[in-house]
Amino acid sequence: MKLAGLKSIENAHDESVWATTWVPPTETRSALLLTGSLDETVKLWKPDELVLQRTNTGHCLGVVSVAAHPSGHFAASASLDSFVRVFDVDTNNTIATLEAPPSEVWQMRFDPKGTILAVAGGGSASVKLWDTATWNLVATLSIPRPEAPKPSDKNSSKKFVLSVAWSPDGKRLACGSMDGTISVFDVGRAKFLHHLEGHFMPVRTLAYSPTEPRLLFSASDDAHVHMYDAEGKTLIGALSGHASWVLSVDVSPDGAAIATGSSDRTVRLWDIGMRAAVQTMSNHADQVWGVTFGPAGGPGRLASVSDDKSISLYDFS
């Protein structure tokens, strides 16, 4: 497996680019790349030349997360002011504005069927689930508090939820928190199942393998990526190699590789079978906040976004 640079756009945004995802293709257009930035805008790009399609404004305080519905028709973007804006990808019409105070908004993910939007709720120690038809809050998956929290401690911030991931069948949802624990929920019963330990620093991104439903990857500030059997509660392996925080992780559509973006300014490609990094891309000049593989069925693509205001597109083969 190999990455080859296709296109890089310097100053794609006016400020750090913090979030990215692919919008799946629809009947009328191909897949698009969606990016969100500290400059309070969300931009849509057309591959492979990364032509700017549209710039969406309306957010305040920096866009921290973007998510695209599996249908490719609409997408969501969220900013530090804890508003989620759901919009039509092609027209930019606002479909809904979501907020669930006092919960903040961090990572968001649509479930594989597209019926639910999961939103990491930060300090509320919970994941909020929104119905994508009615845009009502349908459930709050809360992480149970430890039995005897020390009142004088900053403990309460420890279950601060940063990241979410859906299992490929949509039955499980995992969320990662500031203290490094990962919590696994049964979505159907809205029930907390168990914790996955191993990290002791923030887990900023989680990703399930699309091919092996139990395999979960976690990217943490401890510079490691862990491979968990999310059902069997076991740590299968740890991948080390990044020099600083691992900010994001994504699994390739065929499940054979993962890509990671790190504060050490690199994008790494890992072979799951070998459990080793096979390639390191150093084209970014600052932290790489997001990596995302193109949708299944399309050409093998990987995109990365960075604090250096640029976005990069690679061919993945």
Binding site: L196, D229, K233, L235, I236, G237
Partner: peptide, 9 residues
């Protein structure tokens, strides 16, 4: 390393 129980990690 072989897989280890994630709660004893």
């Amino acid at each position: 390393s072989p897989p280890v129980d994630a709660s004893t990690s």
